[in-house]
């Protein structure tokens, strides 16, 4: 009997782990090949084998010393962080008001904001470029931050509003009776409660800036705050031949920071999805 039940629970476990392993391999194999190719000397690039015959740092040296790729990584970092901070400054108070306060025209305003998400923002790139040149935001970092908000803010308000709306009734009023101003009630009670989801949104907003190619490509020049993703594209299609080893180095360098950030903020993300009970 005991054997029987053990086997019954064991089989689904084995199956689910093998399933997960397959998925994991699908994800990891390309990354593994990228990582190993980054250490191959130029003449080995087209050899179909996993490990390099000679381990070489030439591609890394080239990417950093000649292409100055770390500068663009830094640009991407600033673009992502700025986009995230700016988005939260607008979206958190905005979502709070939409989620918890009553005022005239609230629903109409909210739907107009969310409708912005439905608009294909590829179509905005050209008008943005013209406008940015006119008002002096072209080829500047604040110009990039602002451009990203077209997508980030509606999305963030949409997600955050639902979260704020679900928090227990009377919380702010209670805080106000016990000594808070309306703003302090928001700051001391509502904001701490929304911390996990704000962290998650901040990460997503950062990724928008970090991964963006479209705006960065159109709104910046080689002399300006060009981001890493554009440089990767340029080096892939720019010259007479593609320097695959350098491209792999850049891909690795651009891929690692978000992973590190994710690991750092992981605890907060888990809280976002954990069952809440009040």
């Amino acid at each position: 009997m005991a054997m029987h039940t053990r086997r019954a629970t064991l089989t689904p476990k084995v199956l689910s782990y093998s399933g997960l392993a397959v998925v994991l391999l699908i994800v990891l194999i390309p990354y593994g090949y990228i990582a190993l190719t980054a250490f191959k000397p130029a003449e080995e690039i087209f050899d179909v084998r996993w490990l390099p015959r000679v381990w070489s740092l030439d591609a890394w040296r080239y990417a950093i010393e000649f292409e100055q790729f770390h500068v663009y990584i830094y640009n991407s970092m600033i673009a992502g962080l700025g986009a995230a901070v700016l988005a939260l400054c607008v979206a958190v108070p905005g979502a709070y008001v939409f989620g918890r306060k009553q005022f005239r025209g609230k629903d109409v305003m909210f739907y107009i904001i969310v409708m912005a998400l439905l608009f294909p923002f590829v179509l905005l790139v050209v008008p943005f470029t013209i406008l940015w040149v006119k008002i002096g935001l072209y080829d500047t970092m604040p110009g990039l931050w602002l451009a990203y908000q077209v997508f980030i803010i509606p999305f963030a308000i949409w997600i955050l509003r639902a979260y704020f709306a679900e928090l227990p009734r009377f919380l702010e009023e209670c805080a106000m009776v016990y000594g808070c101003t309306a703003f302090k009630a928001f700051w001391r009670v509502m904001l701490p409660l929304a911390k996990p989801i704000i962290t998650s949104l901040m990460f997503l907003a950062f990724l928008v800036g970090w991964n963006d190619f479209l705006f960065s490509n159109m709104l910046t020049t080689g002399q300006g705050p060009r981001t890493a993703s554009v440089i990767i594209y340029v080096s892939a299609v720019g010259g007479e031949r593609v320097e695959w080893d350098v491209l792999m180095v850049m891909t690795l360098m651009a891929g690692i920071p978000p992973v590190l950030l994710y690991i750092l903020a992981q605890g907060q993300f888990l809280k976002t999805f954990a069952v809440r009970s009040y």
Binding site: L167, P168, R169, F170, L171, E173, C174, A175, M176, V177, Y178, G179, C180, T181, V189, P192, L193, R276, Y278
Partner: peptide
């Protein structure tokens, strides 16, 4: 006066404890 300046204590129907 603002609620905070009244020195009155209000207990709500829903308990409204601060969850965090």
């Amino acid at each position: 006066l603002q609620p905070k300046d009244r020195n009155l204590a209000f207990v709500f129907q829903d308990t409204a404890l601060f969850p965090h």
